[in-house]
């Protein structure tokens, strides 16, 4: 039971959503965009979030786009993880998404909610961070498309009231060899101890992004470069692991040392799997 009530708004367009947000914010209503609602409902019930209005973004057609156009693959922020897995156009995204939460909850959680939410893991961001992704948002100043990597550094930098509308990647990325692995500690369905996503870019470069280590997503250009040197997969993984963040999360899921150990082995697994192709 959510103790505090709020008003409920369901706009049909992104511009309507943003205008509604502004109007409610100016009126002191503390609005939030509402997508899958999993974080908003659970945090509101616990009294960790108090909003005067929720703006449900799931009726905005553009936020539910899915498909190829102009050489890019476009995906709306209000699509559920289950819908992305079912679509399957991008195997790396599907593999990462199918280890987030559990089967039923993946029908609730949206791509946008996972990227913009306060729960730090944001595992669905990893594939977009590795690919040359664009992100389209709508805010007070209108529409804006930018490189995802310029707006995401473990968390998405959104202005107050800025709506995450859609993401896109070059079509070629969908076919690039990739690898994903998630290790959990307490149960198979859990937040990550360590999640790794790896993408073999067009020019033969391997890049890697992590969730769980900090625990917000991290990546390192030095680590990616060290993966390309000479030596066996295990040697390169050990060398690259020196570029993992110096301090790793230390919590219920595992110690920092254990995370480092698991991450190093995951790197070796990723190299072996990608080079065996």
């Amino acid at each position: 039971m959510i103790p505090v009530d709020f008003s409920y708004w369901r706009p049909d367009t992104a511009e309507e959503a943003v205008a509604t947000y502004q109007q409610l914010a100016d009126g002191g209503q503390h609005p939030v965009y509402y997508a899958g609602g999993t974080e908003i409902v659970t945090r509101s019930r616990l009294g960790q979030l108090s909003c005067g209005a929720v703006i449900d973004v799931k009726a905005i057609g553009e936020a539910r786009c899915l498909g190829r156009d102009g050489g890019r693959w476009h995906v709306g922020a209000a699509l559920s993880l289950a819908e992305l897995i079912h679509d399957g156009s991008w195997p790396l995204l599907a593999r990462v998404a199918e280890r987030i939460a559990d089967h039923t909850t993946r029908s609730h959680i949206t791509l946008g909610g996972n990227l913009a939410g306060t729960i730090a893991y944001r595992e669905a961001a990893l594939p977009f961070w590795l690919a040359d992704a664009d992100v389209t948002t709508v805010g007070r100043g209108g529409r804006r498309t930018a490189r995802f990597a310029d707006r995401f550094d473990g968390a998405l930098a959104l202005e107050p009231g800025e709506l995450l509308l859609a993401l896109s990647v070059p079509e070629g990325v969908l076919q690039q060899p990739s690898y994903a692995q998630k290790a959990t500690r307490l149960d198979y369905v859990d937040y990550p101890l360590v999640t790794l996503a790896a993408l073999h870019g067009a020019e033969g470069r391997l890049s890697v992004a992590w969730s769980g280590l900090k625990p917000a997503p991290t990546r390192s250009a030095e680590l990616d470069a060290a993966l390309m040197g000479p030596g066996s997969a295990a040697d390169r993984a050990r060398r690259a692991a020196r570029h993992l963040p110096p301090t790793l999360a230390q919590d219920l899921h595992g110690t920092a040392d254990y995370r480092r150990f698991v991450a190093t082995n995951m790197l070796a697994d990723a190299l072996s799997a990608l080079e065996a192709r």
Partner: peptide, 8 residues
């Protein structure tokens, strides 16, 4: 299947 505790 949906979790009714997570839906408004």
């Amino acid at each position: 299947p949906m979790k009714s505790c997570l839906l408004l």
